[in-house]
């Protein structure tokens, strides 16, 4: 097991290296100068040159990369060009905020969508199935920003049940913090529920057609036992993979939801830093995104044997 984990981490290193080198180069190939942005429309060439020198942007690209990469190996991701904040602590602080929303939303979505998908497959073409598929398709089709605004207008403005703007950390005040997180979590939950439900249904349908399910029924097992002990365990693999991808994708940035609900998460940080050409922050965010993908996929792989005995880790 340990060897497997270590091997996966070592295998991930080239991926991470390629990601960070690509991000480093690509963002500098995009037109737009952080110094000119900081100095505004009054910037003269001398002032811009001075700021370039101060920020180290007057160095050659290989040298800039070597300096940045050298610092990275010591755990130093540099400082934000815009605010001067330490990038590592900034990105981590914002990531933990995003993670609260994403993990809660995906967990809830799994708890609702997986059983719903399995039951919909069990009752294929029945009223339950058609309703579940219709709702899932509708939820998948509505963009998150629109869903968010609808919730904001209905729960916040019309019913006045939840606060419309602002954010309070759960660590600072658990009750108020939870109130602020309900709508963003609900938005993501509704959106992702549709995706997961459809996958759970489709993979269960495939398994339900197999001979061993017929055999199980012929043995006289209850429908519940057939469904959950035999069908679910064997059909959950693809859904589990999808959950891992959804989680990795969302942890990489939910900028739209964060913008609508004024949540100071990593997605908003990444978008703001791209518009501000804040290179160190962009690099820090992208490194975090890549790491999250690697870690989430590793966890997904490690969990396979828990429900699928055909998979072993060697």
């Amino acid at each position: 097991m340990l060897r497997f984990i270590l091997a996966r981490i070592v295998m991930a290193l080239p991926t991470l290296l390629i990601v960070i080198a690509s991000v480093f180069l690509l963002i500098r190939m995009v037109p737009g100068d952080p110094a000119a942005l900081m100095l505004g429309d009054n910037a003269d060439p001398a002032s811009i040159a001075m700021l370039h020198a101060k920020l180290g942007l007057d160095q050659s690209l290989p040298k800039q990369f070597a300096i940045w990469f050298g610092n990275l190996l010591t755990g130093d991701l540099g400082s934000s060009i815009a605010t001067g904040q330490d990038v590592l602590s900034l990105v981590w602080a914002r990531f933990t905020v995003s993670a609260q929303v994403v993990v809660a939303a995906v967990l809830l979505a799994c708890l609702v969508a997986v059983p719903a998908g399995v039951i919909a497959a069990w009752r294929q073409n029945g009223k339950l199935d058609i309703s579940a598929v219709s709702i899932a398709t509708l939820l998948m089709s509505v963009p998150t920003f629109w869903l968010g605004l609808l919730l904001l207008l209905f729960l916040g403005l019309k019913l006045r049940w939840l606060p419309v703007v602002g954010y309070v950390s759960i660590a600072e005040d658990p009750w108020r913090g939870t109130l602020y997180l309900i709508m963003p979590i609900l938005t993501l939950f509704l959106h992702e529920m549709g995706v997961i439900l459809r996958m759970a249904r489709a993979s269960t349908l495939e398994v339900m057609r197999l001979d061993y399910i017929t055999h199980a029924r012929a043995k006289g097992l209850t429908e519940s036992a057939v469904l959950w002990r035999h069908a679910f365990k064997n059909s959950f693999g693809p859904t589990w993979t999808l959950i891992g991808l959804v989680l990795g994708n969302l942890l990489g940035g939910i900028a739209v939801v964060e913008t609508v609900f004024t949540i100071p998460g990593v997605g908003r940080l990444l978008v703001d830093s791209i518009f501000g050409r804040d290179y160190p922050v962009i690099q820090g965010c992208m490194l975090m995104v890549a790491l999250v993908y690697v870690v989430v996929n590793l966890i997904v792989d490690l969990c396979y044997p828990l429900f699928d005995p055909r998979v072993t880790i060697e």
Partner: peptide
Amino acid sequence: MAIPDGATVKAG
């Protein structure tokens, strides 16, 4: 308060 989205400002 930093609120980037215009629709959220209006709702607020």
